[in-house]
Nucleic acid binder design. Structure first.
Length: 576
RNA sequence: UCCCCGGUUGUGUAAUGGUAGCACCGCAGACUCUGGAUCUGCUUGUGGGGGUUCGAAUCCCUCCUGGGGAACCA
């Protein structure tokens, strides 16, 4: 067992410990897991955690992980979701090695297994309707939050039908002889069980709804609790890892394995991911899409894998994040700043640097010869010596960031203000000599300065210390682009925490997206590819969006800002 | 409080009867041609009360507290 890597790269955790124990005790000889998405929505960062566990645990023990679509609810599922899920899984870098399965492919075997249970006297066809089932189960109460005691249920009057009658009725259910909802197949377990899931759970229901894969071949569909353990068994899954809400289903999971006499898989539950300022329920995510609160599943503000990708996140950053958060059974809320840290760390190493100005302010170098242009050399990525360098045009008129000039500098401000010296990144050291103000609006229309010819490239021969370095773009060669600046979709740390009568939609931020139509960048950005994430120096990481036009304006989505120490100082200044 | 599962610095996660550690956040400083990066240092924690033990985050009891469950969804 010494050669088994219990997770040096991803740490150890209670699941890996349990799996290692099973192996040591001979309960299984190999490890086989599965990732079982229902194709009714796109993958999000919470799935990434589950995927990391399913694939990661298998990998730790040199085992396998299947991809299985848990598609037994024809009302919600669709082929487009299958495609989206596969695409995102691949992009994240996971490989199911062709083991791509569908629960809907098991319908025939599942049906046989159900008949087997009937023959053993452990399943029966019930004529009770939905409300009656609840009533008999003892759970048909108006206010669930006010229950102090759950009485035992009582048996359905149809519970003791003969095996022959049940077999016949079940076959006729399949044949379409009965109306939707008029009959169900139920497991005969224990109507007095304190675990409500054991009170004769429904195994099959009648639903005339075309399925995206089986069409109208079936009008009865198996329920999750019956289908899941058996699908796991069919695939030889040894460890069925799922989230905490299935914990209470585990006795049922084990009941079906035992009574169907199939390959036993062990279900182990872990806490699902909760992320601050984010909503991760598929139901809510689909609502944001349908009600057009966002532009789609891949809106860069969405916590979906596709949204994060379009935002500029890398698979490496996402995978790093989901391994850093660990695995436990504690219900927790992970600070989204950890995710942000992970992208910054990854992108800092990988992203090429460029200069761009989001809110342009004209800077005129009064002692620079009219019409003269110079090319200056700039390093592409200071974190990567092999990244090379590029040339940037420099001239008499530049754009600088509005925020980099102040008429009256606040404390600790060491950018441009009258009389102050500042370095233009990769350019010259300049001294601010004045500024033009629009007499009507009071707005500053241009800043004037002189440059020191001795400081070409930014180095001062006299080694004088210049505290501030600001970015710039040469006016004549500037490339215009559109920038989309994103903020949290929800300002609240827990978007679902709302006063009664409100929903998470009431928590939607009104400034989660700011569009800047006319920003300027250095000419070299023309070579940036759609989907590529770069850094605009001092501003943050930006990803070229697919909305960019071939020969027209490029669109850049801001992935994240850089860590902004000045913003903190400024905030503190304001508080004082 | 009918059933199930949890509670370790602000957040997340280790420590499996033997020095409560790591990461993020935050704070301070060093360095820096990105107020970025990097480096150094720092603050804050075992929910409460009892018990077992030489020794308890860990085992036991009890209280408190959080989450989940009662779909012909998964």
């Amino acid at each position: 067992m010494g050669d088994i890597d219990t997770g040096t790269s991803s740490g150890t955790d209670f699941i890996r410990e349990a799996v290692a124990a099973d192996l040591a005790q001979g309960k299984c000889v190999e490890v086989h897991t599965r990732f079982p998405p229902e194709p009714n929505g796109w993958l999000h960062i919470g799935h990434a955690k589950a995927i990391s566990i399913d694939f990661g645990v298998a990998e730790s023990f040199h085992g396998k992980c299947n991809l299985r679509f848990d598609d037994t609810n024809p009302e919600k599922e669709d082929e487009s979701y299958v495609q989206a899920i596969k695409r995102d899984l691949k992009w994240l870098g996971y490989d199911w090695e062709g083991r791509e399965y569908f629960a809907s492919d098991y319908y025939e075997r599942l049906y046989d297994l159900a008949c087997g249970l009937i023959r053993k006297g452990l399943a029966y066809v019930d004529d009770l309707d939905e409300d009656q089932i609840k009533e008999y189960r003892g759970t048909n109460v108006p206010d669930k939050s006010n229950i102090t005691f759950t009485p035992p249920g009582k048996n359905s009057p149809y519970r003791d039908r003969s095996v022959g009658e049940n077999l016949d009725l079940f076959a006729r259910m399949r044949a379409g002889e009965f109306a939707d909802g008029s009959k169900t197949l139920r497991a005969k377990i224990d109507m007095a069980s304190p675990n409500l899931h054991m009170r004769d759970p429904v195994m099959y229901r009648i639903r005339r709804e075309p399925h995206y894969r089986t069409g109208d071949k079936w009008c009865i569909y198996p329920m999750y609790d019956f289908q899941h353990p058996l699908s796991d068994a069919i695939e030889g899954v040894t460890h069925s890892l799922c989230s905490l809400e299935y914990e209470i289903h585990r006795p049922l999971y084990e009941w079906f394995i035992k009574n169907c006499e199939v390959f036993p898989s062990r279900q182990i539950e872990f806490a699902r991911l909760n992320l601050s300022h984010t909503i991760l329920s598929k139901r809510s995510l689909i609502q944001l899409v349908r009600e057009k609160k966002v532009s789609g599943w891949d809106d860069p503000r969405m916590p979906t894998i596709a949204g994060l990708r379009r935002r500029g996140y890398t698979p490496e950053a996402i995978r790093d994040f989901v391994t850093r958060i660990g695995i436990a059974k504690t219900d927790s809320l992970v600070d989204i700043q950890l995710l942000e840290h992970c992208v910054r760390e990854d992108l800092n190493r990988k992203a090429d640097r460029y200069m761009a100005v989001l809110r342009p302010l004209k800077l005129i170098i009064d002692n620079w010869p009219e019409g003269k242009t110079e090319m200056l050399s700039a390093v592409n990525n200071p974190e990567n010596p092999e990244g090379g360098s590029r040339e940037i045009p420099f001239g008499r008129e530049l754009f600088i960031e509005k925020d980099d000039f102040r008429e009256m500098p606040p404390p600790k401000y060491y950018r441009l203000f009258p009389g102050n010296q500042v370095r233009l990144r990769y350019g010259y050291i300049i001294t601010c000599t004045g500024f033009d103000k629009d007499p009507v609006s009071g707005e500053i229309s241009a800043v004037h300065c002189t440059y020191d010819p001795q400081t070409r490239g930014g180095d001062a021969p006299d080694n004088r210390k210049v505290k501030g370095t600001i970015h710039w773009v040469s006016k004549d060669t500037a490339v215009e682009f559109k920038a989309r600046l994103y903020d949290y979709l929800f300002e609240a740390e827990r978007p679902t925490d709302v006063p009664s009568g409100q929903t998470f939609l009431d928590n939607l931020s009104d400034h989660s997206l700011e569009e800047i139509d006319c920003a300027f960048a250095e000419p070299a950005v023309k070579s940036v590819l759609v989907g590529q994430t770069i850094q605009f120096e001092r501003l943050g990481y930006f990803c070229k969006d697919l909305d960019s036009q071939e020969s027209g304006k490029a669109v850049f989505n801001r992935t994240e800002t850089l860590r902004d120490t000045w913003a903190k100082i400024e905030k503190k200044n304001q508080q004082q």
